[in-house]
């Protein structure tokens, strides 16, 4: 683990309507697997969006990969973050093999080789689904496609929101291993209620958002 935090938050306040999230200080270091655990509505997703630069803090300082994420162009997200939202956000007309290599195209990196792609899809139980569109897949399969996209995205930081929400225990185990079991160069930050995934985290943080 590096001594330099890849994520650093200080005196952060987020107000969105009646919701208020306060984070006095948060540091996450490179290679850490951090689980964000809290009851629904306490700000897990808000915190992830804050880290991804999708929302700006009302006040305070947010620093991700050394920069303020909100002020960065979209390409920065493609370069630094492997994002998986709770709503999966899969392009409905793309086929599975296009979905999982989309991030590489966005980063303008060489796309993963066919072997690597096939291996990831195989491990996620999606062998033979390469040419299927999202409409023909179940919710669980779609979730695994979204996860495959994250796994094939060569970004240093993975931010995932409920990555195993629609999966049974068996697939939850497999996906947890894949998401968290890679090299220490990748930092993973996830929000989840899934004990299988939470149990594999290096550290658990619990934001306490509440009405102001």
């Amino acid at each position: 683990m590096s001594s330099e935090p890849i994520i650093f938050l200080e005196e952060v306040l987020v107000k969105r309507g009646n919701f208020c999230l306060e984070i006095p200080k948060l540091q996450i270091f490179t290679g850490e697997r951090v689980g964000i655990v809290a009851p629904s509505g306490q700000g897990k997703s808000t915190l992830l969006m804050l880290l991804a630069g999708l929302i700006a803090p009302t006040k305070g300082r947010v620093c991700v990969c050394g920069v303020d994420p909100v002020s960065q162009p979209p390409q920065w997200r493609a370069q630094q973050l492997a994002w998986m939202g709770a709503e999966l956000e899969l392009a409905t007309d793309l086929r599975v093999h296009e979905q999982v290599t989309l991030a590489a195209h966005l980063m303008k990196h060489p796309i993963p080789s066919q072997d690597i792609t096939d291996e990831v899809l195989n491990r996620l139980g999606l062998a033979g689904f390469q040419n299927r569109t999202m409409a023909s897949l179940s919710t669980g399969q779609q979730q695994r496609v979204a996860l495959a996209r994250v796994l094939l995205h060569p970004a240093p930081l993975r931010l995932t929101d409920e990555p195993t929400a629609s999966l049974d225990k068996g697939w939850s185990n497999v996906c947890s291993d894949l998401l968290l079991g890679e090299s220490d160069a990748v930092t993973v930050c996830f929000a989840s209620h899934d004990p299988t995934l939470i149990g594999r985290a290096d550290r658990i943080i619990s934001p306490e958002g509440s009405p102001p």
């Binding site: 390409q75 997200r77 493609a78 994002w83 939202g85 956000e89 966005l106």
Partner: peptide, 15 residues
């Protein structure tokens, strides 16, 4: 909705 998702992935408006 799809464009919002793609933008979160890092797709630019121009793309």
């Amino acid at each position: 909705a799809e464009h919002a998702g793609l933008r979160r992935l890092g797709a630019s408006q121009w793309m």
